[in-house]
Design a protein around this nucleic acid. Structure first.
Lengths: 353, 353
DNA sequence: CTGTTAGCGCATTCAG
DNA sequence: CTGAATGCGCTAACAG
């Protein structure tokens, strides 16, 4: 039989079936499917009817091959289970789906080498564009992507030297501003809690922002950097390390909300008053940040919106529009809440060790 | 020129280029690429060398069309930003990537109608298998999927009537067991906090499990059901509603950790002692569940592992293995922690009013 | 073991 | 405006 089969025996109706049924050529069917204008209203109606009657669904694999364009966008994030990155993907899918484009996703596990492998594997599937998290990639990754000529967006940070485009915000500026704010509100010995187990540009830039702020204080503070695991447990550990290191520390700026919330909860267990004895700030504005007691001062970025914007730009590029700018800064916002001294509040004498 | 182009001018090397370079036929190159055994070691070496020299990367779109198999698996979850579902996807991608298969993902936003649309769109891309969240789908979705003949796994719950297969655990049993445990430990007036804004089978089964347990108590308790938004804020609201409804309520079984943690934090704000005045239990075992003070009694399921298992089964089915069972129960585990009365603890008189 | 041939289902010429 | 022809890059079947 001439019947094509899907997998194991289900007959799939092809464009030629529709054409025969509507008494037109395959090309004509293709034209109405793809909304080409040059087709008589009468013919269009006949074709559409045939499509409906036969339940025709275009085979996008075949279309992809013929049109040299898949309608698939590839995205690589560190871990799918992390809220921040998942939110970007959520925004991406929302607009992609509206536009008939689909998303292929991979998780690099914070490893540039793994990312490189995934990029290679994805390229073989000929996506129309790429989204990568962050700005740190292997040379091979950069080469592969540049050679492909595809639109590429690196997200969640900014950089002077993007592969193609970058859409994000300055983690450096955010780290610096938040540190400045803590100082302005009266915190005097501010330590930074970072993580080395998931090395990436965002974390590093936040650290550098903190250091930059330290160096500009009237009586320049020596940066105090504590390294922990990026988790609630890590944040709890940071409390122990900080107090052991220097009793004068009166604020912790944690590079992630995960650690910051862990720190707040540890203070609760230990009976350490936040923010009076110890101020705590985070980064990401996870849902738990505003729910925890006391609520957490942190950096907010609308990541779903960022994902939507990334999709918009990527789609426009795929449509052939030339890029206007290599960088889109979506900005960040400091959410000043109760875990740090806030406006009008005075710094009380803390009880000495 | 005969050169094929990727997008805009980048020459892509094809299988025929490799064939010519290695002095063999295209078919032979295809055989070595796909690991067919019937090829002389010497020829294989020549082909591999040519592949390397030319930097050949197979075009998987073309392969998909010719082989009638894409190496793509489609997954649909309610919201990508929710940790529980994202974890399943994480497990899925991990094993898929090892096996050269990729993942296409969509978010239904808890809407069966949206899910139906996505299923339709995905089918046009000819994935080799489907993963769906939960067991509630529109009739059209079920029809489409059955007609496709593709392996389909519904996850995160169990059902008697799967489209094809189901891999998950019994939300009903988990809800019932947890309620039983609360009663066993001395909680007497247990209310259930559910959510109606994201109607789904998992939430409903948890509620039914709760009701089932209530009806078996010595002096059968009338179920008390509180409806809130599925969020930290919703959990906080549940506290207010519960206390207003009946002061005798001494335990809240929340259908999600999100609400349970929100409830615990609200108790902290109101100075309500947990678990002595009010026991609180959740469901999902989010990372925050073990970090919050007091730590949350909840239901744990290893979702990353579940995702891996789903991938394994799906791949095996795609390889042609026939399915042995329509159901895989991955089980659940009660994590009894400090937010409820625990073993050996006695119920104290609670302060009235 | 290996070269050749014939599609996979569609978009896109190119004539008419 | 429309039908027929051509090929996207690859796999699979079939001879050799």
């Amino acid at each position: 039989m001439g019947d094509t089969t899907i997998r194991d025996g289900k007959a799939a109706v092809r464009i030629s079936d529709v054409a025969r049924h509507a008494n037109v050529g395959a090309g004509t069917v293709s034209r109405v499917i793809n909304g080409s204008q040059s087709v008589a209203p009468e013919t269009r109606k006949r074709v559409l009817a045939a499509v409906r009657e036969l339940g025709y669904v275009p085979n996008l694999v075949a279309r992809s091959l013929a049109a040299n364009r898949t309608g698939i966008i590839a995205a690589i994030i560190p871990v799918i289970g992390y809220t921040q990155h998942a939110q970007v993907i959520q925004g991406l899918t929302e607009v992609l789906h509206e536009r008939g484009t689909n998303l292929m996703i991979g998780a690099s596990g914070h490893s540039p080498e793994m990312e490189e492998k995934i990029v290679g594997a994805f390229l073989a599937r000929r996506p129309d564009a790429f989204y990568l998290t962050g700005t740190w990639h292997t040379d091979v990754t950069r080469e592969l992507l540049k050679a492909s000529g595809l639109p590429v967006i690196e997200g969640s940070n900014l950089t002077e030297t993007p592969i193609d485009m970058v859409v994000g915000y300055s983690n450096f500026a955010a780290g610096r501003e938040l540190t400045r704010l803590l100082a302005l509100r009266g915190h005097r010995h501010i330590a930074h809690v970072t993580t080395k187990y998931e090395p990436n540009d965002r974390i590093t830039d936040r650290l550098n922002g903190y250091k930059a702020a330290c160096s500009e204080f009237p009586r320049a503070q020596q940066p105090i950097v504590i390294e922990c695991e990026n988790s609630f447990e890590g944040g709890a550990e940071a409390i122990a390390l900080a107090l052991k290191f220097d009793q004068r520390i009166d604020a912790l700026f944690c590079a992630t909300d995960l650690m910051a919330v862990g720190a707040i909860l540890e203070c609760q267990r230990r009976g350490i008053e936040v923010p009076t004895r110890l101020g705590i700030a985070g980064f990401d504005d996870l849902p738990i940040a505003s729910a925890v007691v006391p609520s957490l001062t942190t950096i907010h970025v609308d990541r779903v919106e960022m994902g939507r914007k990334i999709a918009e730009v990527l789609l426009r590029r795929v449509e052939g529009e030339s890029l206007l700018s290599h960088e889109i800064d979506v900005g960040f916002e400091i959410k000043e809440r109760n875990s740090t001294f806030t406006k009008g509040e005075k710094r009380r004498n803390r009880s000495t060790g």
